[in-house]
Design a protein around this nucleic acid. Structure first.
Lengths: 108, 108
DNA sequence: ATTTGTTATCGTCGATGAACGATAATTAGA
DNA sequence: TCTAATTATCGTTCATCGACGATAACAAAT
């Protein structure tokens, strides 16, 4: 499994450096999908099984306000996007945000 | 950007289904890296700039107990692995866990 | 203008996260 | 055995999350 055999000492590296922007960006994106409900919402939007908020609510075992909160979190993180469509709101994936998430995770 | 133009209605899908195992697994892994300090720790271990807990502490602007907690979280999530090496503990990446994270995120 | 339907926000509550200092546990060496 | 060094755990404090019901905000139709 893990190969911790050889000693590996810290090279010349900033001592106690503050978190880098990349670290913060990844942490923020990861946090957006760090909840089963949000993962589910994201998957539903990706598969385009549903777009309108009301439909999403119907597919989740959660109250409308709770789903709205989760959608807001996904939106604030830039993973999801919402367009007003009459009295309803049609959510869809923000391709750029999702790509960035994949890129940052893949680049680990 | 987003193409929310066409209507997409929900097909035949379980109403209010509980979160699937995959959703929970991804959420759990994502949560492990949903904090800048943990991302940084993971990056340090990936680049093998440091393995021993003490060195990691020296590279973070956090108390020893806090770093230990974050390492425990990463370990519990299966992203990191620790082997006892004398009085010290040598941490290293759990390749399988990291691969699973990448796989789940990439599969979105 | 009023009503109806849809979504966002507010306020609250219980649970959990994040940080720290202090202390225990463990191991190697004197 | 006792000490020194390293790491994990405990207990506390403050802040934030997650969930809900209730209510406000908004658009369309009557």
């Amino acid at each position: 499994m893990g190969d911790c055999g050889e000693e590996c000492e810290a090279g010349a590296l900033d001592r106690a450096a503050p978190p880098s922007d990349q670290d913060e960006a990844l942490a923020q994106l990861a946090w957006a999908i760090a909840h089963p409900a949000r993962v589910r919402l994201l998957r539903l939007l990706i598969s385009r099984k549903a777009c309108v908020c009301g439909e999403l609510v119907g597919l989740m075992p959660l109250a409308q306000s709770t789903v709205s909160q989760h959608l807001k979190i996904l939106k604030d993180a830039g993973v999801v996007q919402g367009e007003i469509d009459g009295p309803k709101v049609c959510y869809c994936v923000n391709a750029a945000g999702l790509a960035r998430l994949k890129e940052l995770v893949g680049g680990l």
